[in-house]
Design a protein around this nucleic acid. Structure first.
Length: 803
RNA sequence: GCGGCUGUGGUGGAAUUGGCAUACACAACGGACUUAAAAUCCGUCGGGGAAACCUUGAGGGUUCGAGUCCCUCCAGCCGCACCA
């Protein structure tokens, strides 16, 4: 037999066998125990599969295969998230239709994924750009609209000057476009919004009911940004109006020495006639409008602002008259767009007050408010605060809230940083929004039976510089009749963001060909929720949050049976280039999976991706590491030459084999793939040390290894003469008795340092163990002239305390 | 600034959750086989060295015993960031 196995022949042979046998197709037999693992469906980019995809795919393929071997009915599906900018940009660049490009990219991805031998149920493939699929994306949108969760708003949005498209807050990273890195400016535009904020509290609370890794939970909680506080109404002199602020520190009301409004605050227009320096105010507003949010915070070192001359507020807690300013350090998008400024106890207010010589009043003792704001409130005691003086901060917050409510000048309020989801894009390659704007009836939804509203073919789908939608040029399509009154009307020309199709795709897998509902209730009841979802951390505040929101909505309207979509969420670390940098074309450090598969085979590739390091950590790629994994599989292959006639697992091999079963079984479940593989390598080393292996011993190894390297294991299993293919071979159990050793190797310590090793038969009385340890020749010199105070025997450690 | 994560050989990383630090690999080196190379097999491989001893980013603490727990720093990565 040759030293190296022929990976191409073996892998292609088994991939064909699996496909012909349809053995990985999930069965809609509701009497079986089910398991639904899910990986994030890929975006089929023109670059082909990235080495990052197989990391997640292999990890859950291992779990999926193991579950089948344990008797579960497994649904491990795959699909394509194919709408979106990169495809459209690529199509524009090459002058080809996006649907053609998409079809090609999907075909390439499918070939690449199949070549890696994932046990996907290919009969359930979904594609978000398929009208039969986006029919239901549109259907969900209409349901959201029907329930008042989709609304049109004239708001300043983030606009990427390079992609020429509006972006959600989540898509703006460091002031630039997440996708292309282009500068993002604010543009006021009429947009469809989804009221995700209505679900803010439930999105936090229900994290308690699911098994997500802590990083994901904390990141979502921080993103939603709940804070408890109070709204306080300030009377404004001169305009007979009220200005409401939000504060988490109602205790500091006595320290509020001025107020600040955001330059965009709507009351400013109303008060314009009474503002004596209105020209100056307008100039400041105009200057702020030109800045992006990013510039505003970048310039945070230096605060700017203008006082509203002629406008004065009355602090409701003490009746004092205080000035009102505008400044862009106050954001319209949070709270009420106005604040009460407490410079003594807020760093930003302090900075502003110092610059503009506004009074600073101490209301919590403990710092020096003339030197810096005293924001630490842990043990602080109130001063200069009327009825609150002498209270602890926590008590004062309560007292102040109670006071506000009693006097009717304020109320308890919870605020969230989370903002509603800007749901429209001005690009071509997305789901059309199934709404019609009728001059007589306003916005009218398409009747459900008219779905899908198909994306029209147009010649020129380039985005326009002015930010208007590409579809607005599809004149024949735009002009339609109102479904309600039959009069002439126009379709919505914006499309959905590509987060739309991915917000519910896991539901479609349960029933992908259903044309009468998004998935049948029985199938959803059986298959959902997803049992285990693995994906990237970068989707924590995007896809993961959006899809939880949609799912909760679908639960509320009775479409899905559970309030949460995913029972368990884990995350993989990114694979870096060999030099430790992020892989990118510009850094010239991209590893192409095809090359690795060609050279080493799919099994070695999968094995290395799991062995390279801790699954949840970022890891640099290493070509020689990958070769080492191939070397291991060759070593496994050559075990066939070392077969001996022994029956079953020989007594001498029992501890090693059963320890491996235990280790591998447990480590797969904990996603400790690297140590599971190390354990199998050790077992193989044991076989080599012994010089031979029995059929049963080898078969056990192959069974454990088959989820990671399925092709070579199937081939060897067949050659060993086993009739049952690996993928339905029962997962082995370990025998605890086989792990019990009859001798125990103790480390003998004196005062915590190992001085000797001692092998003793198991089950000796402690007194005897101590006696033996104290008699060790290697130990005696360290006991010279010392009294033995105590001997501690724990597990396989004997510690002699002497002094 | 806030939140999270990480720090162990030349490299990727192990360590049964407080119990013999450096498993398993990669790289390197030596040997066998070969005319030779590749492949393969067998060895060596934290530092220091005659031994003692030292070693998990630094310093302190708890403990019979600390990579692991506590405190104070340092460095790096990621997320959020004028959120009132």
């Amino acid at each position: 037999m040759t030293d190296r196995y022929d990976h191409d022949a073996i892998e292609l042979k088994w991939q064909k066998k699996w496909e012909d046998a349809h053995c990985f197709e999930a069965k809609d037999d509701f009497s079986l125990p089910k398991f639904y693992p899910l990986i994030e469906f890929p975006y089929p980019s023109g670059a082909g599969l990235h080495v990052g995809h197989p990391r997640s795919n292999t990890a859950l393929d291992i779990i999926a295969r193991k579950r089948r071997m344990e008797g579960f009915n497994v649904l491990y599906p795959i699909g394509y998230d194919a709408f979106g900018l990169p495809t459209e940009n690529y199509a524009i660049k090459t002058g080809r239709q996006p649907e053609l490009v998409t079809a090609e990219n999907i075909a390439r991805f499918r070939t690449q994924l199949k070549r890696l031998g994932f046990s996907f149920d290919w009969s359930r493939e979904v594609n978000t750009t398929d009208p039969a699929y986006y029919k239901w994306t549109q259907w969900i949108f209409l349901k959201l609209y029907e329930h008042g969760l989709a609304y049109k708003a004239e708001i300043p949005i983030n606009f990427c000057t390079s992609c020429k498209v509006g972006l959600a807050n989540e898509e703006v990273v460091d002031g630039v476009c997440e996708r292309c890195g282009g500068p993002v400016i604010q543009k006021v535009r009429s947009q469809w919004m989804l009221k995700i904020t209505a679900y803010a509290q439930r999105l936090i609370d229900d994290l308690d009911t699911v098994d997500f890794i802590d990083r994901v939970k904390t990141q979502q909680i921080n993103w939603i940004g709940r804070s408890e506080g109070a709204e306080v109404d300030f009377r404004i002199k001169g305009v007979e109006d009220t200005l409401t602020v939000f504060t988490t520190r109602a205790d500091t009301l006595f320290g509020a020495t001025y107020m600040v409004m955001s330059p965009e605050h709507p009351l400013l227009a109303k008060w314009a006639g009474s503002i004596q320096n209105i020209a100056e105010v307008k100039a400041y507003q105009a200057a702020s409008a030109r800045k992006s949010d990013f510039e505003r915070s970048e310039l945070s070192k230096e605060k700017t602002g203008v006082p509203l001359a002629g406008i004065l507020a009355i602090n409701p807690i003490n009746g004092e008259t205080i000035p009102v300013w505008i400044s862009d350090y106050v954001l319209m998008s949070y709270g009420t767009g106005a604040i009460m400024a407490v410079p003594g106890h807020d760093a930003r207010d302090w900075e502003f007050a110092k610059k503009f010589h506004l009074p600073i009043v101490e209301v919590v003792a403990g710092g020096d408010v003339q030197k810096e704001a005293y924001t630490d409130c842990g043990t602080g005691v109130m001063v200069n605060s009327g009825f609150m003086t002498g209270l602890q901060v926590e008590e004062a917050i309560e007292a102040a809230k109670a006071y506000l409510e009693e006097k009717g000048i304020g109320r308890r309020k919870v605020n969230y940083k989370l903002r509603d989801w800007v749901f429209t894009r001005q690009r071509y390659w997305g789901e059309p929004i199934p709404l019609v704007n009728c001059p007589a009836c306003g916005w009218v939804p398409l009747p459900y039976e008219q779905l899908p509203l198909e994306l029209p073919h147009i010649e020129n789908y380039q985005p326009s510089d002015d930010g208007s939608s590409a579809l607005s040029r599809a004149v024949d399509w735009i002009h339609t009749t109102c479904p309600k009154c039959g009069g002439p009307a126009e379709r919505e020309a914006d499309t959905m963001p590509n987060w739309a199709g991915s917000s519910w795709y896991f539901l479609r897998y349960a029933d992908p060909h259903n044309d009468s509902c998004l998935a049948s209730p029985e199938k959803l009841r059986y298959w959902t929720p997803v049992d285990w979802y693995n994906g990237g951390m970068e989707h924590t505040t995007l896809h993961l949050l959006y899809s939880r929101f949609w799912h909760k909505f679908l639960y509320d309207i009775g479409v899905v049976p559970t309030p949460e979509p995913y029972q368990k969420r884990t995350s993989h670390g990114m694979i870096l280039g060999e030099n430790g940098d992020k892989m990118s074309k510009s850094r010239n450090n991209v590893i192409n999976p095809d090359d690795i598969v060609r050279e080493l085979g799919a099994d070695s590739f999968r094995l290395y991706e799991m062995f390279m390091g801790a699954f949840d950590q970022p890891i640099p790629w290493s070509n020689s590491g990958a070769q080492g994994c191939r070397r291991f599989l060759d070593r496994v292959w050559r075990l066939q030459d070392m077969l001996t006639d022994g029956e079953g697992i020989r007594p001498a091999m029992q501890p090693a084999v059963h320890a491996a079963i235990k280790k591998v079984s447990e480590d797969y479940e904990r996603m400790k793939y690297n140590t599971a593989i190390a354990a199998m390598m050790s077992l193989v080393n044991d076989f080599y040390a012994k010089g031979d292996v029995t059929k049963a011993e080898l078969h056990t190894l192959l069974t454990l290894l088959s989820p990671v390297a399925p092709h070579i294991c199937e081939e060897m299993n067949e050659r060993l003469g086993y009739a049952i293919p690996m993928y339905i071979t029962p997962w082995p159990a370990w025998d605890p008795n086989a792990l019990v050793k009859d001798t125990i190797e103790y480390g003998v310590q004196v005062n915590g340092k190992v001085r000797a090793r001692l092998a003793l038969p198991a089950g000796l009385p402690t007194a005897e163990i101590e006696k033996q340890a104290l008699a060790q020749a290697d130990v005696l010199p360290y006991l010279e002239g010392k009294a033995v105070r105590k001997v501690i025997v724990v597990k396989n450690i004997i510690n002699i305390v002497a002094g």
